[in-house]
Design a binder for these strands. Structure first.
Length: 585
RNA sequence: GCGGCCGUAGUCUAGCCUGGUCUAGGACAUCAGCCUGCCACGCUGACGACCCGGGUUCAAAUCCCGGCGGCCGCACCA
């Protein structure tokens, strides 16, 4: 083994393939980049990490879990903004074949701003490139037609190709799309959260980083809805003294990656994090990673700069973990999505996504409203008039007026509303409460990346032997049962112990192949925390030895007390030393 | 997608330059048997590979072309 020369990524990928954690899919046909198959051990490891996420979010915080389709009608991702934003304009040099982001080139050569460039259509990009005589920065060649590369997987639903569908690039939209019903299921109370664990698809241009970047991967999206006027978080008290290591956007602007370590409380007081719920989820994410075996000093939260943020986000932090090959790698994203998604789905679907909150006392106020003029709307929009009028009446008058001033019309979904269709009037009303769109903070985890960092931090070498020191509550196999030698009735006795443990609900493995040392070594490599060995003394007094994977120490105890002690051990209630009497060498 | 390097059993590798002696050698792992009284012991045996497709040639693991895949760099990563 040349473990000195190979980095951990290589070592882990080899081990993963050899022992059955994961490998590249479709190997017999040459493999396909960006797709992975989990084997027996990997599947279980992943399930156990999922279980931890469920325990944290669903059991402890009362977040509701759903499971929804991967394929969605095009409309969903048009509304979410993904069709518009989830693509990059690219141009290819006709001479050398190199490809570049058209917008990046223009930004540099034509000195256009980020926002200006983003608005350009393909046609405009092409003209701008010609006008500014932008040429290939590598060879000076001319460029071909700019083309979009859409990073969503596109398909058609049913036999009609015009029924376009997309593979979801995130699990979040299912939650926003179903918001009405989910809110009802949650008995119409804020705050509340919904989680979805499932596959997502992103047609990455060149995914070459194993579990770190896949085209099909498992995402854990939690959408937490709250009233922006009451952003306070009832968990804050429990977590306010947890520390967070932050790299703030302002440091990044100075070109520094300086880490400020603050408590959750300070981060909020100093305005580093805008929303209390977001700070709390960040603290929970840190705890989760720590429990997966990543030390706090190998974690940080890095704030995204405005132009790095997703289109829906007002403030974003990436939780990063330091890995051997690439340095800091994102494992979760924490975005303040505000009311962006629900608002967009309201505009596109025409379905009201607002919630109602009753005031303690009704208030009489004078307010400005948009009054739809049915006589004008009717002839124009025919059958849809009623629906349009209802939505218009609920729109924010300032927003509508501003749009009239700026553009001369207002876009309600795909309907163009001209100023003469409505009146903006002041009137006195008694309000019993208010309608509003809840705000959302979203912690979002890449489960495959969690699996990877768990493996990397579990990876240890002791006396030239590989040990995967998984935290005991996520180990794919909990106990190994071994006869010291495979003769004299020891295998039969060991089998009895094995069956008893299975019956008690443990994930156990029986192994009698090869010498005892070899079996211990094999078990260490699969990350099995405990080994139970049946020896000649067992036949006399029903005691067995219990071996610790990480220290190779052994203790001895009665078979009869194993179930209770092991249950406590795997729930982290007792330590290895409490499992029995130390064995004298 | 571009450029460089690369692709031989589950893993690591010999052979490739200089085509034939390759029925492709070794080590580790795995399986079976013996052995084994606590950390990859030993012995015997078994399983198991030239990435795919074309071409050149009497003859291709070896030379050429294309594809697929990998690593590194560029680009990309909402």
């Amino acid at each position: 083994m040349n473990s000195q020369t190979q980095d951990k990524f290589t070592l882990i990928n080899e081990l993963a393939r050899r022992r059955g954690f994961f490998w590249q899919s479709y190997e017999i046909y040459g493999g396909a980049s960006g797709f992975v198959t989990y084997g027996f051990l990997g599947t279980r490891l992943k399930q156990n990490i999922e279980k931890k996420l469920r325990d944290l979010f669903v059991n402890k915080l009362g977040i509701l879990e759903i499971e929804a389709p991967i394929i969605a009608p095009a409309k969903v991702f048009e509304a979410s903004g993904h069709v518009e934003h989830f693509k990059e304009p690219m141009v290819e040099c006709l001479k050398c074949g190199r490809r570049f982001r058209a917008d990046h080139l223009l930004k540099e050569k034509a000195r256009l701003s980020e926002t200006e460039v983003e608005k350009l259509t393909l046609e405009e990009l092409k003209n701008a490139i010609e006008r500014n005589d932008v040429r290939c920065p590598e060879c000076g060649g001319a460029f071909g037609e700019p083309k979009y590369f859409l990073t969503m997987f596109k398909t058609s639903i049913g036999p009609y190709s015009e029924a376009v569908g997309y593979g979801r690039p995130e699990a979040a939209q299912n939650i926003f799309v179903e918001f009405r019903r989910l809110y009802e299921n949650a008995r119409e109370k804020l705050p509340f959260g919904v989680m979805q664990i499932g596959h997502a698809l992103r047609n990455e241009i060149s995914p070459r980083q194993g579990l770190i970047r896949l085209r099909e991967f498992t995402i854990v999206d939690v959408e937490f809805f709250f009233d922006p006027e009451e952003p306070n978080c009832y968990l804050l008290k429990d977590l306010e003294n947890e520390t967070l290591r932050l790299v703030l956007a302002e440091s990044k602007l100075r070109g520094s990656e300086e880490i400020v370590e603050v408590t959750v409380k300070e981060a909020l007081e100093k305005g580093f994090i805008k929303v209390p719920w977001q700070a709390v989820f960040m603290a929970l994410a840190k705890k989760l990673l720590t429990e997966l075996g990543v030390p706090a000093e190998k974690q940080r939260f890095i704030e995204k700069l405005p132009w790095e943020r997703a289109h829906y986000s007002l403030q974003s932090f990436d939780q990063e973990v330091y890995v051997d090959r690439w340095g800091w790698v994102e494992v979760s994203g924490h975005a303040y999505r505000t009311d962006y998604d629900l608002k967009r789905h309201m505009q596109f679907s025409g379905v009201d996504t607002r919630v109602f909150k009753e005031y303690e006392k009704p208030v009489e106020i004078e307010k400005t409203v948009v009054k739809p003029l049915m006589a004008k709307l009717g002839p124009k929009f025919k059958g849809e008039t009623q629906k349009i009028a209802e939505i218009l009446a609920e729109m924010n008058p300032e927003e509508v007026e501003e749009s009239f001033k700026k553009k001369g019309y207002y876009m309600l979904g795909e309907h163009k509303i001209l100023p003469e269709y409505v009146e903006i009037v002041k009137c006195k009303v008694t309000e019993k409460g208010k309608h509003f769109i809840p705000h959302v903070v979203e912690p979002s985890f890449g489960l495959d990346r969690l699996v990877y960092v768990t493996l990397e931090y579990a990876y240890h070498v002791k006396d030239d032997r590989v040990i995967l020191s998984f935290p005991r509550d996520i180990a794919p196999i909990q106990v190994g049962v071994y006869p010291l030698v495979s003769k004299d009735g020891l295998p039969e006795k060991a089998m009895q112990v094995y069956k008893m443990l299975i019956d008690e609900g443990f994930i156990a493995e029986y192994d009698e192949a090869g010498s005892i040392g070899r079996r211990y070594a094999r078990a260490d490599e699969a990350g099995i925390p405990l080994g139970i060995t049946i020896d000649y003394e067992t036949l006399k007094d029903d005691t067995v030895t219990i071996r610790d994977r990480d220290t190779w120490r052994q203790v001895r105890n009665k078979i009869a007390v194993l179930p209770e002690l092991l249950h406590k051990y795997f729930r982290n209630k007792i330590d290895f030393e409490d499992l029995g009497e130390p064995l004298k060498e």
